[in-house]
């Protein structure tokens, strides 16, 4: 594993009213990789993500950014949020302007960039999130999936090293999901570290390099996608089973144990066709 860019050590957090959401959690985000935080509803995924950019302050433990404990002063938070971008689950919670361009320009202007630089960042983010065909429309005339991409573009325009996404594919239809994933793949290829929460094991398998398995406010185990998602014994107590695509591929005749498994539908189909051709 490469060096960690973001870590959580012994993180605990209670919501007002004494609801324990995180209890002594450890997590490591490796630079340049895609980490899935996999866990059921109410496990505390959102609460954890809100700690990763300093929105919530832990009751115990600390978040480390680039190897140093992150601080909560105004200046420290500003630097932290420039490095770690957070995309909320609900796009409407993030979009405050009726104009797509205006909304995306907000982050860059807060970074203190000039209007000209901000304009360049806005165009860049619009291209990166494949939004050029909708920028002239007001936010309230966009589809759910398009709004989601505008919300992400608002973060992308700040060029953070890490982008944290809360359930990025929730509510998207297959084509909306595909559009989003292509755009995220570009960001990842350009070197951005991605962290996302999900309760969908197949999505985690298709998309993650690393997986943190989450249950009741703790990371039960963290490792590579293969280490975690193919371990049926580890998953069983959480009511989960290894991803279907991996299970099918493992049962194909001619599968050599230890060989890489297909991650998505297209790769599985290619393998099946290959078998038939032989």
């Amino acid at each position: 594993m490469s060096e960690p860019i973001l870590e959580a050590r012994g993180l605990s957090y209670d919501y007002p009213g004494g609801i324990a959401a995180l209890s002594g959690l450890d997590l490591t985000v490796a630079r340049g990789r895609r980490l899935a935080i996999l866990g059921p509803n109410g496990a505390g995924k959102t609460t954890l993500l809100l700690h990763l950019n300093g929105t919530l302050r832990p009751k115990a433990g600390e978040v480390r950014l680039d190897g140093a404990a992150a601080g909560y002063t105004r200046a420290a938070l500003r630097a932290w949020r420039a490095a770690v971008g957070l995309v909320l689950q609900e796009a409407d919670d993030q979009l405050f302007s009726a104009s797509v361009r205006q909304d995306i320009s907000f982050g860059p202007l807060n970074l203190g960039l000039s209007e000209e630089e901000a304009r360049a960042r806005v165009s860049e983010a619009i291209a990166a999130m494949r939004l050029s065909h909708v920028v002239e429309r007001p936010t309230h005339m966009l589809s759910f999936g398009q709004k989601k991409r505008v919300a992400i573009a608002g973060i992308v325009a700040m060029r953070p090293s890490v982008i944290v996404l809360d359930e990025p594919t929730a509510g998207l239809d297959p084509s909306g999901e595909r559009h989003l994933l292509y755009a995220l793949a570009d960001l990842h290829a350009a070197g951005t570290t991605l962290v996302f929460s999900t309760h969908d094991i197949d999505f985690a398998w298709a998309w993650a390099d690393d997986v943190a398995l989450f249950q009741e406010g703790k990371v039960v185990r963290q490792g590579t996608a293969e280490e975690i998602l193919l371990d049926a014994a580890l998953l069983k107590p959480l009511g989960l089973a290894p991803p279907l695509i991996a299970e099918v591929a493992r049962r194909l005749p001619g599968y050599a144990p230890g060989a890489p498994l297909p991650r998505d539908r297209a790769a599985l189909l290619a393998r099946l066709n290959g078998e038939e051709a032989r």
């Binding site: 809100l50 500003r78 949020r81 971008g85 993030q94 361009r101 205006q102 907000f106």
Partner: peptide, 18 residues
């Protein structure tokens, strides 16, 4: 929640836009 979303983009009280 919107405050959280805006804070993630550096909101400190103003809403500057192009």
């Amino acid at each position: 929640r919107m405050e959280t979303g805006l804070a993630a983009r550096g909101f400190e009280g103003d809403l500057p836009v192009l």
